[in-house]
Simulated assay, not measured.
Amino acid sequence: MKKIIGVILRHLKQLFISGKYDTFVSEISKKSPWVYISYISESFYRRDDKKYFNSHQNIRESIEIVRLFNEKGYNVYVQSPKSRKKLPQIDFKIIFGIEPNFIRAAKKYSSAKMIYYATGAFIDHQNNQVRQMTDYINNTYNANLRYVRLVPEHRSAYLADYIVQIGSNYTIETYPEELRKKIRIIRQSTQTVTSYPSIQYAEENEFFFMSSTGNALKGLSLLVEYFSQHQDLRLNIVGTIEDNFKSVMSSLFTSNIVFWGYLDINGIVFSDLSKRCNFVIYPSGSEGMPGAVLNSMKKGLIPITTRWAAVDNIEELGFLMPSWSIDGIDVGVKWALGLSKDQVKKLRLKSFEFVKDNFTIENFNKDLSKFIDSLKNEGSF
């Protein structure tokens, strides 16, 4: 009973917080045109909450998006994507953000330019992968896991004039051909503090995985299955493990599979753990560009991923798994174990430098600023 009451109280608290922080206005001039943004509004009220602010790169990026539009001469009205407050009576020139309020705004302000901010793969691809990867677990282990991370049906990409995409060219491939010409990729930021001096060959040669909600979609069942069959190898798992997933897969939790729970990615434990690993392995079925992989690479870990979790030109940095499957993982692990110590050292440093040089808040700003400027120069708005 206490557990149930606790869940209810946390839920009510979250509802209160969401309602309190679900809009934010940044007006630079009475004469300036307006942009409506359907994205994170809470971040503007919690900048001093370090744990919240550092919890995900999109918190900081949400603030930068508003700052950039202000810098370009626009007033900005931010509304949480799921807020049910009435849309304001403002003549918006640009609608930017994510569903569902992106869709509400697109219908109400139909003469505005529509910029969909896509942080994941195309909706049909994602939902198909959620179903397939969950069905794999249910059929293999006679389970009844529900589909987690299904995206409610929407057609934001079709409504949009432009799609600002967090991801890679592999992400673009998840879209229908007719939508791809709308897409402009921008580089997201990472939260991991640069750790150049600590990057070296890890004698333990362990593997690393950072989990989040949607364990099935991330391919965690496949990793558990594989490493339970290869107990001479060690898999370190950081992050969220869903209770239902745990109950289904727990019989395969062998001693070489270690669960660390939530860790601060800039904390001592996370840092020490990354020094024991040479590889991050991520057999996900659908992503934009997973922060779990980028932040791991910034710690000097070599990526072994499916195409949907891969950076462009991953073959120069790590290994592209042929599929999300046990065989796909096996090929990737055998590739990793076949590398010499010198090859591992070089790839670890190359992985670190690639993310350090590309996936920064400065480059996020640069890419988005360049996109906005290009549309203004074209006379699009």
Rank of each mutant, 00 (worst) to 15 (best):
I5M: 12
L9A: 10
H11N: 15
D22E: 12
T23Q: 12
Y39P: 01
D48E: 14
E61K: 07
E64G: 01
E64D: 08
R67I: 02
F69S: 06
N70Q: 12
Q79P: 03
R84P: 00
I95V: 13
P100M: 11
S110L: 01
S111I: 09
M114K: 15
M114I: 05
T119P: 01
D124F: 08
Q126P: 00
R131M: 13
A143H: 03
R146G: 12
V148G: 02
E153G: 04
V164L: 15
I166F: 05
R180N: 00
I183E: 00
T190K: 12
E203Y: 10
S211V: 10
G214P: 06
K218M: 07
G219W: 03
L223H: 10
V224H: 13
E225G: 03
Y226A: 09
S228C: 08
D232I: 01
R234C: 14
G239R: 10
I241Y: 09
D243P: 02
W260C: 05
W260Y: 15
D264G: 10
I265D: 07
F270W: 06
S274G: 02
Y282E: 07
S286M: 01
E287Q: 04
A292D: 06
A292M: 09
L294R: 09
M297L: 10
K298Y: 03
K298G: 09
K299E: 06
I302W: 05
R307E: 10
R307Q: 14
I314C: 07
E316Q: 15
G318W: 06
G318C: 12
F319S: 05
P322M: 07
P322E: 12
P322V: 03
G328W: 03
G328C: 10
D330V: 04
V331T: 08
V331F: 11
G332Q: 07
L339P: 03
L339G: 03
R348Q: 13
K350V: 06
K356P: 00
I361F: 15
E362A: 08
S369F: 06
F371A: 09
F371R: 01
D373I: 08
L375T: 04
K376R: 14
S380K: 13
S380G: 00
